[in-house]
Nucleic acid binder design. Sequence first.
DNA 1: TTCGTAATTGCAGACGATTGCAAGGTGTTA
DNA 2: TAACACCTTGCAATCGTCTGCAATTACGAA
Lengths: 344, 344
Amino acid sequence: MKKGRQVTMKEIAKKLGVSVSTVSRALQDSPELHAETKRKIVEAAKEMNYRPNLLAQSLRISRSKTLGVIVPEITSHFFASCISGIQDIANTRGYNVMICQSNELLSQEKANIQTLVSSQVDGLLISLSRETNTYEHLYELYDREINFLLFDRVQEDIPVSKVTFNDVSGAYQVVKHLLENGSRRIVYVSGPEDLYISKKRKEGYLRALAEFGVAEDPSLVLISDLTLEGNLRVAQQVLQMDPRPEAVFCMIDPVAVDVLTEWKKSGIRIPEDIALAGFTDNPTAAVVEPPLTTVSQPGYEMGKLAVSHLLDQLDGLASEDPISIVLDTTLVVRKSSQHFPSKK
Amino acid sequence: MKKGRQVTMKEIAKKLGVSVSTVSRALQDSPELHAETKRKIVEAAKEMNYRPNLLAQSLRISRSKTLGVIVPEITSHFFASCISGIQDIANTRGYNVMICQSNELLSQEKANIQTLVSSQVDGLLISLSRETNTYEHLYELYDREINFLLFDRVQEDIPVSKVTFNDVSGAYQVVKHLLENGSRRIVYVSGPEDLYISKKRKEGYLRALAEFGVAEDPSLVLISDLTLEGNLRVAQQVLQMDPRPEAVFCMIDPVAVDVLTEWKKSGIRIPEDIALAGFTDNPTAAVVEPPLTTVSQPGYEMGKLAVSHLLDQLDGLASEDPISIVLDTTLVVRKSSQHFPSKK
DNA sequence: TTCGTAATTGCAGACGATTGCAAGGTGTTA
DNA sequence: TAACACCTTGCAATCGTCTGCAATTACGAA
């Protein structure tokens, strides 16, 4: 509504009786300017409360100094941490950040990309939605030579840099831990099967089983759609298995928390009756009763690394060749996995 | 790095042998254009994968269709929910959103404002940092006639619209609930005293006490700096009180969760030995053991309402006169408050 | 056939900033 | 005193889009 007129270089120039170009150079601290003129201009600018118009600047130099970020959900603690890391680094390196959420929808993801591209972001950091199973929109970015990078939820075939956690090894670690405690019948609760992390974590699960000479049993792999209902269904499925599994490894913490709650309602004791473990180390994992054994993946660090690499590419500090950065996860052992079936 | 040349109107114009202005009008679906020309241009634009340059557009019409949001912390579930609500509404109304976090620092908050103003946002939604105890930066926005609005963490004297929760009534409700259960010695754990919500929730606490004829006892008001250490200190302080309080109301859930954890370590049973309640209804509140009685404040709704009002103002649909929107909270009774001291 | 009017389209000047190049001024040297 | 170089500053074009106004065309009416 209000006009909120901004002070422009033109006004500074008029006030001081110099040209706009001189003002521009003064504010850029150009060396080819008389020191006194420069001083006067800088002073006037401060006094008049001048703020550069980033839009005009970006248009002129065709660089917006803005990055776009697309995450499935901001309300997820993990992604919020990533964003936080991205912002901290981006800001210290002089970049702004525009954040969008896809709400786990492919259509939203595409729309977000359009918006950000139209906004002339210098680069994009994308974590794919759950729904994303076609990738033309990403190849289009690639064809247009727009810098982007995938993190956490990636698609491996796309020839851009990726930042991921070592999901295989994380899952391997936690399942190995369950095996070492004596469990053999171990359930893996997966999310939708085409999800990157569903696959990777299953891979780690299977690897650990293989290492301990436990045969793969497809009936021990359950799938949840990651809704509350889906998770509760899985919880019940496990209870109805005969013989009952000794341990359950859920692909992400929220599933484990729902399962845990449901079991407690059914009078199942954890870890006495069955061991439980998750993945992500959400804040809830530490405070549920019993505390949940899980795998910690520092989102803040991931965000920092991802944006650092992208900015390095933008600033020409890193090769444009795609690289893959793989972060290590850490097994966090808590009470929920302290179930020790007697080994045969 | 890459040139990633965008298709511009100029190129479409050249290809079709028309002028840029004609292209511009065609893409705006201007009625003063020959239908056939329009059709051809629109078609060519689609085919050439034209995307408008929002920077140029914004510069030209001096409206960026972008809003700025400043929150203390993105990783807080409550603020993440607010952001989510803001984005959903903003997007459906054709606005983008730039999000910044102040990390609870006044200096960051100021810097964020500068950045967003420079980026020519059409309006700002601000939730103040914990540190913010001077307000010149906000008055400056006001003087510059930049549209903004405060939400959740507000400063009452500033003549702009505000969206808050009815903190007084929320606190009143939960303390009343504790009183009704029979507690009389009720501790209030406050955050830093100049924080808006510290004051408001204390007000509700005192009002409930007064209504039940319980005299105010300053020794029952404890202050935490909201760090883990501060919270644990408070937990111990309570245990050392003699006689022990019958209930504790913490200003925000994270404090209550820390207190709860610490007490459990010390062998205190909740709610058998003492009642506990929080405020916010974080996801953790529902899953701790015992589940935490708290006050729910829907951040998503707050975000939606706040941005709706700001956009109404921007679009001239609402008066520019500041208004105050107060949202209701809901008492969520869970097990942690089920402590019933025998009344005298 | 000529004129007026309406329907289309193009020109050119913004928006605010940057930058190559030219122009003005000063001082130095022969 | 003339010539040259350098130090400062301004001019003008540019980034991509929008828009008031002028110009062109076409068409029907007289």
